[in-house]
């Protein structure tokens, strides 16, 4: 019995190391949204200059779609834009966007340069709606189901890998 007490520090340490080893296989930058499985917040955003459609919560009902948060100053957004373009063109996924903390005129030029896969873009220059969505930074991508509920959030640029492994299967399942 007394001997077991002396074994305790070792046992605690082994558990600790085990935890660290598990941590190695764990992807810590997955930040699940606080709004998962909840309806998108009520909002209505004006269009970018020269565009006719803004974005409102009422637009996000009736079909499975993505909402992408982007800004012209955001470098990773530039990297993920071709992926979004392909997603819209080749897979026919409906993508809406929130232009976040950005100058609307800059965003228009940026979309012209990098391609515009978005059906409609709402302009949120002062992060009024972004905060309601719990946006950390750009880019973020939300998967919205047909009932207008947020089902998944991806933080950081979408890469082909993410599309194939997560986004497309989830969309198919929600359309299911």
């Amino acid at each position: 019995m007394r001997r077991l007490v002396y074994l305790l520090p070792l046992v605690a340490f082994v558990v600790l190391v085990g935890w660290f080893v598990l941590g190695l296989q764990h992807d810590p930058h997955v930040l699940p949204s606080a709004l998962i499985d909840k309806p998108v917040p009520e909002f209505s955003l004006p269009p970018l200059p020269g565009f006719d459609r803004g974005l409102a919560s009422s637009d996000l009902k009736g079909k499975v779609q993505l909402v992408n948060v982007f800004a012209s100053w955001c470098l990773p957004c530039r990297a993920e834009q071709p992926v979004l373009v392909r997603l819209a063109k080749d897979f026919g996924v409906a993508i809406q966007a929130i232009n976040w903390k950005d100058k609307p005129s800059d965003a228009v030029i940026w979309l012209r340069q990098n391609g515009n896969p978005f059906q409609s873009v709402g302009s949120d220059p002062d992060n009024k709606v972004g905060i309601d969505w719990g946006v950390y930074g750009a880019p973020e991508t939300y998967v919205i189901d047909a009932h207008g509920r947020i089902r998944y959030r991806h933080v950081g640029p979408l890469m082909p890998f993410d599309i194939e492994e997560k986004i497309l299967p989830l969309i198919r399942q929600l359309q299911g």
Binding site: R3, Y6, P9, L10, F13
Partner: peptide, 14 residues
């Protein structure tokens, strides 16, 4: 380092 020394501790400290 830590595991080894704690093992030695468990064996010898009693």
């Amino acid at each position: 380092a830590i595991g080894g020394s704690l093992l030695l501790y468990a064996l010898r400290a009693p």
